[in-house]
């Protein structure tokens, strides 16, 4: 008596929350796994990226706040991998068994975060992206366990965001060289945030994620939400971003072509080199310069440790 696609979609339209795999169709489950995996990997890979920057913290107190954020992110990853486990996936394999290029985190977390300034801009921009992307399913998702898990995650992300915004303002108030450093970070991290939200709606094939109400908003809507928070923040900081509010259109518009090419070695966007979204996907697939490094940080000791148990008939660490 398996559930048909149509019956499930109808239930969901009526506001029904799916609670377990037994209530899913194959299509629903596949779409759910896909979206959860992106979230889990994003949370997970933010940890080594933030850690790299935390090593340059300017005081014990700031290092402490960075660690608090890293712990939260690992916690979010853990919660999300647990949700995947409930759908029949192997959490240990997902974390420790996959190759670096198999992780589905956004391109932004394949980049080196090298300074304290880059860390706080990441908190202000990337954690903001996280909040925008996750508060959508928190409000709209049809998958009950995910909705409930997001309550705690959302709250903690707000702390990361506040950390980023307070620090950005503080640094920019100092003016001079410090503000210039913030500007340099924003110059590469802002377009990174814009690209995070993916292909614009008019190019995008209609998606299963929306049909199953795994999420409720489109890429363009989410990108606008992000811009409407980030652009005013930068203006308040006296930081320039290549985007502005267009009163006529009633929305934010970019002052550069999306998508365009990026030079990861120099951390520079090439606004004079527009490309296609297919080329963006190729760049993402090639992965950014720190993908292997970050995955290595998370996985290296696991293999060494597992080797201790070889011959014990106990291949698993847990």
């Amino acid at each position: 008596m398996s559930l048909t696609e149509e019956a499930l979609k109808e239930r969901i339209r009526q506001g029904y929350l799916v609670e377990s795999p037994e209530e899913m169709t194959e299509g629903y489950k596949k779409a759910l796994i896909q979206i959860l995996l992106v979230q889990a990997d994003t949370e997970l890979m933010s940890a080594p990226a933030y850690y790299m920057a935390a090593c340059t913290a300017p005081s014990l107190n700031t290092r402490l706040s960075a660690y608090a954020i890293i712990q939260d992110e690992l916690g979010h990853a853990h919660i999300t991998f647990r949700l995947l486990e409930d759908l029949g996936l192997d959490k240990e394999y997902l974390i420790f068994g996959r190759k670096p290029h198999e992780f589905k985190n956004p391109y932004g977390f394949d980049q080196p975060l090298e300074t304290w300034v880059e860390l706080v801009v990441a908190n202000a921009f990337f954690d903001r992206a996280g909040i925008v992307l996750l508060s959508d399913p928190f409000e709209n998702t049809s998958y009950g366990p995910w909705k409930r898990a997001l309550a705690k995650i959302d709250k903690e992300e707000l702390f990361h965001l506040r950390h980023g915004e307070v620090w950005m303002k503080r640094l920019c108030q100092a003016g001079g060289k410090i503000q210039e450093e913030v500007q340099r970070a924003v110059d590469w991290m802002f377009p990174m945030g814009v690209e995070w939200f993916g292909m614009p709606d008019h190019l995008k094939r209609h998606t299963a994620q929306l049909e199953y109400k795994l999420k409720g908003k489109t890429n363009d809507q989410l990108r606008q939400e992000w811009l409407s928070a980030v652009v005013p923040l930068c203006e308040e900081c006296g930081i320039h971003v290549p985007a502005h509010y267009d009163a006529e259109q009633g929305q934010y518009v970019l002052d550069y072509p999306l998508p365009c090419d990026y030079d990861p070695e120099r951390k520079q966007w090439l606004f004079d080199k527009p490309i296609t979204w297919d080329q963006v996907f190729e760049r993402w697939k090639r992965r950014g310069p720190y993908n292997e490094h970050y995955v290595g940080m998370l996985q290296r000791q696991y293999r060494r440790f597992a080797a201790l148990f070889d011959g014990n008939g106990n291949g698993s660490v847990r």
Binding site: S65, A68, I69, R162, H163, V166
Partner: peptide
């Protein structure tokens, strides 16, 4: 003791 939010 490690409260990261003392300032806040």
């Amino acid at each position: 003791t490690a409260c990261p939010a003392m300032d806040f």
